[in-house]
Amino acid sequence: MAQLRVTSKALPEHNRQHNRSLLLQTLFHDGPMSRADLARESGLTRVSVSDLVNELASEGLISELGTRTGAHVGKPAQLIGLNENAYHVVSLDLSADDRFVGAIVGLGGEIVHRAEVPLENAKGDDAVSKAVGLARDLVKRSTVRLLGIGVGTPGIVDQDGVVLSAPNLDWTGLDLAEVFRTEFGVPVHVGNDANAAALAIHTFHDPGQSFMLVAIEHGVGAGLIIGGVLVEGEHSTAGEIGHLVVDESGERCVCGRDGCLEQAIAVPHLRARLRAAGDAQREKVLADAGHSLGLALAPIIAALGLDDVVLAGPRDLVEGTFLDAALDTVRSRTLSAVGDGARMTIADDSHDLVLLGTAVFVLAAELGVS
Protein backbone atom coordinates (compact mmCIF):
# COMPACT_ATOMS: atom_id res chain seq x y z
CA MET A 1 0.00 0.00 0.00
CA ALA A 2 0.99 3.66 0.04
CA GLN A 3 3.92 4.55 2.24
CA LEU A 4 2.73 5.60 5.71
CA ARG A 5 5.97 7.05 7.03
CA VAL A 6 8.08 9.67 5.30
CA THR A 7 11.62 8.34 4.96
CA SER A 8 13.25 10.74 2.49
CA LYS A 9 13.02 14.38 1.51
CA ALA A 10 10.99 15.58 -1.46
CA LEU A 11 13.09 17.00 -4.27
CA PRO A 12 11.89 19.80 -6.59
CA GLU A 13 11.60 17.39 -9.52
CA HIS A 14 9.34 15.15 -7.42
CA ASN A 15 6.98 18.08 -6.78
CA ARG A 16 6.87 18.99 -10.46
CA GLN A 17 6.15 15.41 -11.49
CA HIS A 18 3.43 15.21 -8.84
CA ASN A 19 1.81 18.40 -10.11
CA ARG A 20 1.97 17.23 -13.74
CA SER A 21 0.18 14.06 -12.73
CA LEU A 22 -2.35 16.06 -10.72
CA LEU A 23 -3.33 18.10 -13.79
CA LEU A 24 -3.53 15.06 -16.05
CA GLN A 25 -5.56 13.18 -13.44
CA THR A 26 -7.98 16.09 -13.09
CA LEU A 27 -8.53 16.33 -16.86
CA PHE A 28 -8.79 12.54 -17.15
CA HIS A 29 -11.63 12.29 -14.63
CA ASP A 30 -13.36 15.68 -14.87
CA GLY A 31 -13.05 16.42 -18.58
CA PRO A 32 -12.10 19.63 -20.40
CA MET A 33 -11.88 22.85 -18.42
CA SER A 34 -10.24 26.26 -18.50
CA ARG A 35 -6.89 27.04 -16.92
CA ALA A 36 -8.70 28.94 -14.17
CA ASP A 37 -10.96 25.93 -13.51
CA LEU A 38 -7.92 23.67 -13.46
CA ALA A 39 -6.20 25.92 -10.91
CA ARG A 40 -9.28 25.83 -8.65
CA GLU A 41 -9.71 22.05 -8.95
CA SER A 42 -6.03 21.24 -8.42
CA GLY A 43 -5.24 23.89 -5.79
CA LEU A 44 -2.21 25.03 -7.79
CA THR A 45 -1.54 28.68 -8.62
CA ARG A 46 -2.56 29.97 -12.04
CA VAL A 47 1.10 30.61 -12.86
CA SER A 48 2.01 26.99 -12.05
CA VAL A 49 -0.96 25.70 -14.04
CA SER A 50 -0.08 27.82 -17.06
CA ASP A 51 3.54 26.67 -16.96
CA LEU A 52 2.58 22.99 -16.68
CA VAL A 53 -0.14 23.26 -19.32
CA ASN A 54 2.39 24.71 -21.78
CA GLU A 55 4.78 21.87 -21.00
CA LEU A 56 2.12 19.16 -21.39
CA ALA A 57 0.83 20.76 -24.58
CA SER A 58 4.33 20.78 -26.07
CA GLU A 59 4.44 17.03 -25.43
CA GLY A 60 1.07 16.55 -27.10
CA LEU A 61 -0.60 15.23 -23.95
CA ILE A 62 -3.19 18.01 -23.77
CA SER A 63 -4.68 20.24 -26.43
CA GLU A 64 -6.67 23.44 -26.83
CA LEU A 65 -10.34 22.73 -27.53
CA GLY A 66 -11.64 26.22 -28.30
CA THR A 67 -13.72 28.61 -26.23
CA ARG A 68 -16.40 27.59 -23.76
CA THR A 69 -19.91 28.03 -25.15
CA GLY A 70 -22.85 29.49 -23.26
CA ALA A 71 -23.56 32.75 -21.45
CA HIS A 72 -20.63 33.84 -19.28
CA VAL A 73 -19.47 37.24 -18.08
CA GLY A 74 -16.23 38.48 -19.56
CA LYS A 75 -13.93 36.99 -22.15
CA PRO A 76 -14.84 33.39 -23.09
CA ALA A 77 -12.52 30.89 -21.45
CA GLN A 78 -10.27 28.68 -23.54
CA LEU A 79 -10.88 25.02 -22.77
CA ILE A 80 -8.09 22.47 -22.57
CA GLY A 81 -8.44 18.71 -22.41
CA LEU A 82 -6.52 15.47 -22.39
CA ASN A 83 -5.42 14.49 -25.89
CA GLU A 84 -6.64 10.91 -25.84
CA ASN A 85 -4.95 10.20 -29.17
CA ALA A 86 -1.49 11.34 -28.06
CA TYR A 87 -0.40 7.80 -27.26
CA HIS A 88 -1.62 4.24 -27.46
CA VAL A 89 -1.15 1.49 -24.91
CA VAL A 90 -0.90 -2.15 -25.95
CA SER A 91 -2.77 -4.26 -23.40
CA LEU A 92 -2.67 -8.04 -23.01
CA ASP A 93 -5.05 -10.26 -21.04
CA LEU A 94 -3.56 -13.72 -20.47
CA SER A 95 -6.23 -14.93 -18.03
CA ALA A 96 -8.51 -17.06 -20.24
CA ASP A 97 -8.04 -20.82 -20.49
CA ASP A 98 -8.34 -21.04 -24.29
CA ARG A 99 -6.90 -17.81 -25.74
CA PHE A 100 -4.79 -14.73 -25.15
CA VAL A 101 -6.57 -11.42 -25.83
CA GLY A 102 -4.96 -8.09 -26.65
CA ALA A 103 -6.02 -4.56 -27.50
CA ILE A 104 -4.78 -1.16 -28.51
CA VAL A 105 -6.15 1.27 -25.92
CA GLY A 106 -6.27 5.07 -26.09
CA LEU A 107 -5.38 7.32 -23.17
CA GLY A 108 -9.05 7.74 -22.26
CA GLY A 109 -9.66 3.99 -22.03
CA GLU A 110 -11.29 3.47 -25.41
CA ILE A 111 -10.41 0.19 -27.14
CA VAL A 112 -9.17 1.10 -30.62
CA HIS A 113 -8.46 -2.40 -31.88
CA ARG A 114 -8.79 -5.88 -30.45
CA ALA A 115 -7.08 -9.16 -31.37
CA GLU A 116 -6.66 -12.64 -29.93
CA VAL A 117 -4.74 -15.85 -30.47
CA PRO A 118 -5.87 -19.35 -29.50
CA LEU A 119 -3.85 -20.77 -26.63
CA GLU A 120 -4.10 -24.37 -27.87
CA ASN A 121 -2.91 -25.69 -24.49
CA ALA A 122 0.41 -23.87 -24.87
CA LYS A 123 2.52 -23.63 -21.73
CA GLY A 124 5.99 -22.46 -20.77
CA ASP A 125 8.03 -20.93 -23.59
CA ASP A 126 5.31 -21.69 -26.15
CA ALA A 127 2.84 -19.58 -24.19
CA VAL A 128 5.39 -16.75 -23.95
CA SER A 129 5.86 -16.86 -27.73
CA LYS A 130 2.12 -16.58 -28.29
CA ALA A 131 1.88 -13.57 -25.98
CA VAL A 132 4.83 -11.81 -27.65
CA GLY A 133 3.43 -12.56 -31.10
CA LEU A 134 0.08 -11.07 -30.16
CA ALA A 135 1.77 -7.93 -28.83
CA ARG A 136 3.88 -7.67 -31.99
CA ASP A 137 0.76 -7.64 -34.16
CA LEU A 138 -0.82 -4.92 -32.02
CA VAL A 139 2.32 -2.76 -31.97
CA LYS A 140 2.38 -2.85 -35.77
CA ARG A 141 -1.25 -1.74 -35.93
CA SER A 142 -0.83 1.25 -33.59
CA THR A 143 -0.99 4.51 -35.51
CA VAL A 144 0.45 6.86 -32.84
CA ARG A 145 3.27 6.82 -30.30
CA LEU A 146 3.31 3.90 -27.88
CA LEU A 147 3.25 4.84 -24.20
CA GLY A 148 3.97 1.27 -23.14
CA ILE A 149 2.76 -2.31 -22.92
CA GLY A 150 0.63 -3.63 -20.07
CA VAL A 151 0.24 -7.34 -19.36
CA GLY A 152 -2.24 -9.00 -17.03
CA THR A 153 -1.36 -12.60 -16.23
CA PRO A 154 -2.69 -15.18 -13.79
CA GLY A 155 -0.45 -16.11 -10.89
CA ILE A 156 1.80 -14.30 -8.45
CA VAL A 157 3.63 -11.35 -10.02
CA ASP A 158 6.13 -9.17 -8.18
CA GLN A 159 6.55 -5.41 -8.58
CA ASP A 160 9.31 -5.90 -11.16
CA GLY A 161 7.04 -7.84 -13.50
CA VAL A 162 8.48 -11.26 -12.67
CA VAL A 163 5.89 -14.04 -12.71
CA LEU A 164 6.87 -15.92 -9.57
CA SER A 165 4.30 -18.67 -10.09
CA ALA A 166 1.56 -19.26 -12.66
CA PRO A 167 0.82 -23.01 -12.55
CA ASN A 168 -1.79 -22.98 -15.31
CA LEU A 169 0.80 -21.60 -17.76
CA ASP A 170 3.74 -23.49 -16.27
CA TRP A 171 5.60 -20.24 -15.50
CA THR A 172 7.92 -20.02 -12.50
CA GLY A 173 10.34 -17.14 -11.94
CA LEU A 174 9.67 -15.80 -15.44
CA ASP A 175 10.79 -12.18 -15.97
CA LEU A 176 7.96 -11.45 -18.37
CA ALA A 177 8.50 -7.69 -18.24
CA GLU A 178 12.10 -8.09 -19.38
CA VAL A 179 11.04 -10.42 -22.20
CA PHE A 180 8.75 -7.72 -23.58
CA ARG A 181 11.17 -4.84 -22.95
CA THR A 182 13.90 -6.68 -24.86
CA GLU A 183 11.53 -7.39 -27.74
CA PHE A 184 9.90 -3.96 -28.07
CA GLY A 185 12.14 -1.41 -26.31
CA VAL A 186 9.26 0.42 -24.61
CA PRO A 187 8.10 0.63 -20.97
CA VAL A 188 6.44 -2.64 -19.91
CA HIS A 189 4.31 -3.18 -16.82
CA VAL A 190 3.20 -6.67 -15.84
CA GLY A 191 0.78 -7.51 -13.05
CA ASN A 192 -1.71 -10.02 -11.77
CA ASP A 193 -4.89 -10.21 -13.86
CA ALA A 194 -7.25 -9.77 -10.89
CA ASN A 195 -5.31 -6.68 -9.76
CA ALA A 196 -5.67 -5.32 -13.29
CA ALA A 197 -9.42 -5.91 -13.23
CA ALA A 198 -9.70 -4.15 -9.86
CA LEU A 199 -7.80 -1.14 -11.22
CA ALA A 200 -10.15 -1.00 -14.21
CA ILE A 201 -13.15 -0.86 -11.87
CA HIS A 202 -11.42 1.78 -9.74
CA THR A 203 -10.42 3.97 -12.68
CA PHE A 204 -13.40 3.71 -15.03
CA HIS A 205 -16.37 2.87 -12.77
CA ASP A 206 -15.63 4.76 -9.51
CA PRO A 207 -17.17 2.24 -7.06
CA GLY A 208 -15.76 3.92 -3.97
CA GLN A 209 -12.46 3.92 -2.12
CA SER A 210 -12.55 0.33 -0.85
CA PHE A 211 -13.78 -2.83 -2.56
CA MET A 212 -12.75 -6.34 -3.61
CA LEU A 213 -12.90 -7.59 -7.18
CA VAL A 214 -13.21 -11.38 -7.54
CA ALA A 215 -12.19 -12.59 -11.00
CA ILE A 216 -13.60 -15.99 -11.97
CA GLU A 217 -12.13 -17.37 -15.18
CA HIS A 218 -9.60 -20.12 -15.82
CA GLY A 219 -8.57 -19.58 -12.21
CA VAL A 220 -9.87 -17.49 -9.32
CA GLY A 221 -8.23 -14.39 -7.90
CA ALA A 222 -9.08 -11.19 -6.10
CA GLY A 223 -7.94 -7.61 -6.43
CA LEU A 224 -8.15 -5.39 -3.35
CA ILE A 225 -8.51 -1.62 -3.40
CA ILE A 226 -8.38 -0.24 0.15
CA GLY A 227 -8.58 3.49 0.70
CA GLY A 228 -8.02 4.09 -3.00
CA VAL A 229 -4.78 2.07 -3.03
CA LEU A 230 -4.13 -1.28 -4.70
CA VAL A 231 -3.02 -3.78 -2.04
CA GLU A 232 -0.43 -6.24 -3.35
CA GLY A 233 0.89 -7.71 -0.10
CA GLU A 234 4.33 -8.27 1.37
CA HIS A 235 5.16 -10.98 -1.16
CA SER A 236 2.85 -9.87 -3.98
CA THR A 237 0.33 -12.51 -2.90
CA ALA A 238 -2.61 -10.35 -1.78
CA GLY A 239 -5.79 -11.63 -3.41
CA GLU A 240 -4.52 -15.18 -3.98
CA ILE A 241 -7.78 -16.74 -2.84
CA GLY A 242 -8.01 -19.41 -5.52
CA HIS A 243 -6.06 -21.90 -3.45
CA LEU A 244 -7.88 -21.40 -0.16
CA VAL A 245 -9.21 -24.80 0.87
CA VAL A 246 -12.99 -24.68 1.16
CA ASP A 247 -13.73 -28.42 1.08
CA GLU A 248 -11.11 -30.86 2.34
CA SER A 249 -12.96 -33.73 0.66
CA GLY A 250 -13.05 -31.90 -2.67
CA GLU A 251 -11.20 -32.56 -5.91
CA ARG A 252 -7.40 -32.49 -6.19
CA CYS A 253 -6.08 -29.12 -7.34
CA VAL A 254 -3.02 -28.35 -9.49
CA CYS A 255 -1.39 -26.93 -6.34
CA GLY A 256 -1.49 -30.40 -4.76
CA ARG A 257 -4.21 -29.71 -2.18
CA ASP A 258 -7.75 -31.02 -2.14
CA GLY A 259 -10.83 -28.82 -2.33
CA CYS A 260 -9.39 -25.45 -3.30
CA LEU A 261 -11.77 -22.63 -4.18
CA GLU A 262 -10.49 -22.77 -7.77
CA GLN A 263 -11.73 -26.34 -8.09
CA ALA A 264 -15.13 -25.25 -6.81
CA ILE A 265 -15.83 -22.17 -8.90
CA ALA A 266 -13.29 -21.65 -11.72
CA VAL A 267 -15.10 -21.62 -15.07
CA PRO A 268 -13.78 -24.89 -16.57
CA HIS A 269 -14.50 -26.90 -13.40
CA LEU A 270 -17.90 -25.33 -12.79
CA ARG A 271 -19.05 -25.84 -16.38
CA ALA A 272 -17.90 -29.46 -16.28
CA ARG A 273 -19.98 -30.10 -13.15
CA LEU A 274 -23.00 -28.42 -14.70
CA ARG A 275 -22.73 -30.63 -17.79
CA ALA A 276 -22.47 -33.75 -15.65
CA ALA A 277 -25.37 -32.74 -13.38
CA GLY A 278 -27.88 -31.86 -16.09
CA ASP A 279 -30.65 -29.27 -16.00
CA ALA A 280 -32.40 -30.76 -12.99
CA GLN A 281 -29.42 -30.14 -10.70
CA ARG A 282 -28.18 -26.89 -12.24
CA GLU A 283 -29.40 -24.59 -9.46
CA LYS A 284 -27.95 -26.84 -6.74
CA VAL A 285 -24.54 -26.92 -8.45
CA LEU A 286 -24.52 -23.12 -8.74
CA ALA A 287 -25.70 -22.69 -5.14
CA ASP A 288 -22.94 -25.01 -3.87
CA ALA A 289 -20.35 -23.06 -5.86
CA GLY A 290 -21.63 -19.73 -4.51
CA HIS A 291 -21.54 -21.17 -0.99
CA SER A 292 -17.87 -22.08 -1.51
CA LEU A 293 -17.07 -18.53 -2.55
CA GLY A 294 -18.93 -17.17 0.49
CA LEU A 295 -16.87 -19.43 2.78
CA ALA A 296 -13.67 -17.95 1.36
CA LEU A 297 -14.84 -14.32 1.40
CA ALA A 298 -16.52 -14.12 4.83
CA PRO A 299 -13.32 -13.85 6.93
CA ILE A 300 -11.74 -11.43 4.43
CA ILE A 301 -14.78 -9.15 4.48
CA ALA A 302 -14.90 -9.29 8.28
CA ALA A 303 -11.17 -8.63 8.70
CA LEU A 304 -11.13 -5.65 6.32
CA GLY A 305 -14.58 -4.26 7.08
CA LEU A 306 -15.48 -4.31 3.39
CA ASP A 307 -18.94 -3.53 2.07
CA ASP A 308 -18.50 -3.98 -1.67
CA VAL A 309 -17.53 -7.06 -3.65
CA VAL A 310 -17.59 -7.02 -7.45
CA LEU A 311 -17.71 -10.33 -9.33
CA ALA A 312 -16.13 -10.54 -12.78
CA GLY A 313 -17.01 -13.69 -14.67
CA PRO A 314 -19.50 -15.21 -17.12
CA ARG A 315 -22.95 -13.84 -16.30
CA ASP A 316 -24.67 -17.16 -17.00
CA LEU A 317 -22.67 -18.63 -14.11
CA VAL A 318 -22.31 -15.85 -11.53
CA GLU A 319 -25.63 -14.03 -11.85
CA GLY A 320 -28.60 -15.11 -9.75
CA THR A 321 -28.25 -18.34 -7.76
CA PHE A 322 -24.44 -18.24 -7.50
CA LEU A 323 -24.29 -14.61 -6.29
CA ASP A 324 -27.24 -15.03 -3.92
CA ALA A 325 -25.69 -18.12 -2.30
CA ALA A 326 -22.32 -16.38 -1.90
CA LEU A 327 -23.88 -13.33 -0.25
CA ASP A 328 -26.14 -15.42 2.00
CA THR A 329 -23.12 -17.43 3.16
CA VAL A 330 -21.15 -14.27 3.98
CA ARG A 331 -24.05 -12.89 6.00
CA SER A 332 -24.63 -16.17 7.85
CA ARG A 333 -20.98 -16.36 8.91
CA THR A 334 -20.31 -12.79 10.01
CA LEU A 335 -21.71 -10.40 12.60
CA SER A 336 -24.79 -8.55 11.43
CA ALA A 337 -22.82 -5.29 11.65
CA VAL A 338 -20.51 -6.74 8.98
CA GLY A 339 -22.74 -8.94 6.84
CA ASP A 340 -25.80 -6.69 6.69
CA GLY A 341 -23.80 -4.01 4.91
CA ALA A 342 -22.19 -6.40 2.44
CA ARG A 343 -23.07 -5.91 -1.22
CA MET A 344 -22.20 -8.05 -4.23
CA THR A 345 -22.54 -6.87 -7.80
CA ILE A 346 -21.47 -8.13 -11.21
CA ALA A 347 -19.15 -6.10 -13.40
CA ASP A 348 -20.88 -4.93 -16.58
CA ASP A 349 -17.88 -5.38 -18.89
CA SER A 350 -16.10 -8.37 -17.37
CA HIS A 351 -14.52 -9.37 -20.69
CA ASP A 352 -12.69 -6.02 -20.98
CA LEU A 353 -11.64 -5.42 -17.39
CA VAL A 354 -8.17 -6.96 -17.56
CA LEU A 355 -7.42 -5.17 -20.85
CA LEU A 356 -8.45 -1.83 -19.38
CA GLY A 357 -6.66 -2.55 -16.11
CA THR A 358 -3.36 -3.34 -17.81
CA ALA A 359 -3.71 -0.02 -19.64
CA VAL A 360 -4.01 1.56 -16.18
CA PHE A 361 -0.76 -0.19 -15.18
CA VAL A 362 0.91 1.87 -17.90
CA LEU A 363 -1.04 5.10 -17.40
CA ALA A 364 -0.31 5.10 -13.67
CA ALA A 365 3.39 4.33 -14.05
CA GLU A 366 4.12 6.65 -16.97
CA LEU A 367 1.67 9.54 -16.43
CA GLY A 368 0.47 9.20 -12.85
CA VAL A 369 -3.14 8.71 -14.00
CA SER A 370 -5.43 6.05 -12.56
Rank of each mutant, 00 (worst) to 15 (best):
S142W: 00
I265W: 00
A103M: 06
R141E: 15
D126Y: 07
K9C: 00
V49Q: 08
S350I: 08
L224R: 05
L213G: 04
A337T: 15
D316T: 01
F204M: 02
D160N: 13
E366I: 12
P12F: 07
A127N: 14
G357F: 11
R271A: 02
V285R: 01
V128T: 14
C255H: 01
G185Q: 10
R99A: 12
E251I: 04
N83Y: 02
L367S: 03
L270T: 05
T26H: 04
A337H: 05
P207S: 09
L82A: 04
G60C: 07
G106E: 11
T182P: 00
K284F: 06
R252G: 00
H72M: 10
R271H: 01
D258A: 07
C260L: 01
V220P: 04
L164Q: 09
L274R: 02
L79Y: 13
R315K: 11
A359C: 03
E178S: 14
A39C: 03
G148H: 10
V89R: 08
R35Q: 08
S292T: 01
H113Q: 13
D97M: 03
D125E: 14
G150C: 05
A57N: 12
T172D: 03
D51N: 15
R331T: 06
L107K: 02
V188F: 08
G242M: 05
S350Y: 13
H205A: 10
G43P: 07
F322C: 05
K284Q: 12
T67A: 12
S332D: 14
D137R: 04
G305V: 04
T143E: 15
E110R: 00
D316Q: 00
L11N: 03
V245K: 04
T358R: 04
T45F: 13
F322E: 09
G305C: 05
L306Y: 03
D308R: 10
G219M: 11
D308C: 02
L94D: 12
R68K: 14
A77N: 06
A365M: 07
S370V: 08
G191Y: 06
D37R: 13
D308S: 09
K140G: 15
E234S: 13
V105T: 10
G60Q: 04
